[in-house]
Every structure is written in structure tokens, then in C-alpha cells.
């Protein structure tokens, strides 16, 4: 085979053998696939195994996807439980009631990942409010306003 002055050395060119299993793909291909999954499917995908967990978490950390999933988020704390209400772009509303620490990790993840039209904070104590303020660094919001019962209205 004459290859002329091909810019890729042949040994490098032929080094990647055929792919028989998904994990044989390089990271960039797996990311191409992960980024095309829906929000909940991405969360499911990360539970499949370590490599997919690490890849999915990396994209979440850089806020690469699942924007526009939510148009509204409401966070409440009552009796040590966190209640997270998410309104999707299709108008459906999901309410999740979780132990506080789990709720905080979900809140952190959601705020890194979604675009919001509105946010509401209700029944927030000082410790939670400071965490919320920290997470605000990651949030993508068209018009950000948040409300707390104890502290009035802020913009």
C-alpha cells in the first residue's frame, strides 16, 4: 500500500483496533453518546459502572448538558426533610421529598445542570441559605429571583 506523505504514522493509524464493547470507545466518543441522553437517562447511565459514572459526573461538573430541563425550582425544608419541586419545560411538576443531606446533593447537581426561569426558597435556615448561595455560582437562570419566608424577597 502506497500512502504518500500521510500525516498520520501508520503504526499510530492502525493502533486502535475494532471496538467490540462500548467501553473500548475512547472517552470523547462515550461523551458524544452521553451528551445525547435525556436528563434522567444520564443519571441512570452513571449508575452502570465506574467509567460511565466518572465521565457523566465530569460533564455535569462542567454544566455541559441538561440545560432547559427545568423552568422552575422550589426548595423547602420542613422537619429535617428537603422538598424539591421541579417544573419541566413541558409544564409537568415533580415533587421530591428527601433527607436533608441527600436533598442538598440533588439541589447542587440540579443547579449545576439546569436553566431556570424562576427559583423559590421557602423555610430556609441560615446554614442552608449559605449553601444555596454557594450553589448559585453554578446556576444558569434567565431571570433569577429567590424568595424566602423568613428573609423576604431578594433579587
Amino acid at each position: 500500500i502506497a500512502t504518500g506523505r500521510c500525516h498520520v504514522p501508520l503504526d499510530a493509524l492502525f493502533s486502535r483496533r475494532s471496538v467490540k464493547a462500548l467501553l473500548a470507545f475512547p472517552d470523547e466518543i462515550l461523551l458524544e453518546i452521553i451528551e445525547r441522553l435525556s436528563f434522567t437517562d444520564r443519571l441512570q447511565m452513571r449508575a452502570v459502572n465506574h467509567r460511565l459514572y466518572d465521565l457523566e459526573s465530569r460533564t455535569a461538573a462542567t454544566a455541559a448538558a441538561y440545560r432547559s430541563v427545568s423552568t422552575g425550582l422550589e426548595w423547602k425544608m420542613m422537619d429535617g426533610l428537603a422538598s424539591l419541586t421541579i417544573e419541566t419545560v413541558t409544564g409537568s411538576i415533580s415533587i421530591f421529598t428527601l433527607p436533608l443531606e441527600t436533598g442538598l446533593s440533588v439541589l447542587k447537581r440540579t443547579m449545576k445542570s439546569c436553566t431556570f426561569d424562576t427559583m423559590k426558597l421557602l423555610h430556609v435556615d441560615e446554614k442552608c441559605l449559605s449553601k444555596f448561595a454557594f450553589y448559585l455560582r453554578h446556576v444558569r437562570a434567565k431571570k433569577l429571583g429567590f424568595y424566602t419566608i423568613e428573609q423576604g424577597v431578594s433579587d
Partner: peptide, 15 residues
């Protein structure tokens, strides 16, 4: 993969 459970994903992807 879309819409599948974790177990179904493992089966489809043979992981």
C-alpha cells in the same frame, strides 16, 4: 439506551 433502567442499560451495552 433512552428510557431504560440501569439493569437494561447494562444488558444492552453488555457491561
Amino acid at each position: 439506551i433512552n428510557g431504560k433502567t440501569v439493569e437494561e442499560m447494562r444488558e444492552i451495552l453488555q457491561l
